[in-house]
Nucleic acid binder design. Structure first.
Lengths: 103, 103
DNA sequence: ACAATAAGTCAGAAAAATATGACTATTAAA
DNA sequence: TTTAATAGTCATATTTTTCTGACTTATTGT
């Protein structure tokens, strides 16, 4: 170990973290698409132009980690996985709308 | 020239660009502090923990470029420069508030 | 006159985000 | 039975963002 990286959570600004999280690659698109239908990995890869597995995978995981999306295994044949907005996720929709109305 | 980089503005999502702009280093802090008093470069450098000249300079310039901040040269002695929220900049405050209330 | 403060710019380095291609495991279709 | 689709992971590149330190120009304080 050379130098201990200071990671003592400098959250001066409360909006900072959330904003960073939401602005990552594909994130806004995920919210937009999730309003229309449950998200599926392979469809997203086609729907979101310029996306790729890794980024998408990370985006979904991060949004799930903070409880904005939830992962549901659909036990009907053909069984598959859906990612859906949680209640908390839905609560962010007005923020996106508002941002769109400005811009 | 090897390969022409595709930069054909893939703005699928309207909120995307603005979100990216607002989430950069120091950006949310700038808004928060601008509510209290006009911003001055050297004070910001001290106020915003973990900031640095370059990042701050870029942050201010970017926010000014899109008309969220404006740069004002104060012609009183000692003359100096202030960065203030524009009307458009102020219109974003509710978005920040809303983000803070969630999170 | 000399040092200090304000408000930066610039080039290059380091760190973080994103992309690529190879690979895996399970299920389903031909 | 071989092939294709889904839903990823992993290691490694490449790109973007952020940091560092040296330098600048104008003004002000001692």
């Amino acid at each position: 170990m050379t130098i201990k990286k200071e990671n003592i959570d400098n959250e001066t600004c409360p909006a900072q973290g959330l904003l960073k999280l939401l602005s990552g690659k594909c994130k806004p698109e995920l919210f937009r698409l999730a309003l229309e239908a449950p998200l599926r990995f392979s469809s997203l890869l086609r729907q979101i132009e310029g996306s790729n597995k890794q980024t998408l995978s990370v985006a979904l995981r991060e949004l799930e980690e903070v409880g904005l999306l939830e992962k549901v295994v659909i036990q009907q044949k053909p069984l598959h996985i859906e990612h859906r907005l949680t209640e908390k996720g839905n609560s962010l929709i007005p923020v996106f709308k508002q941002l769109e109305s400005l811009g």
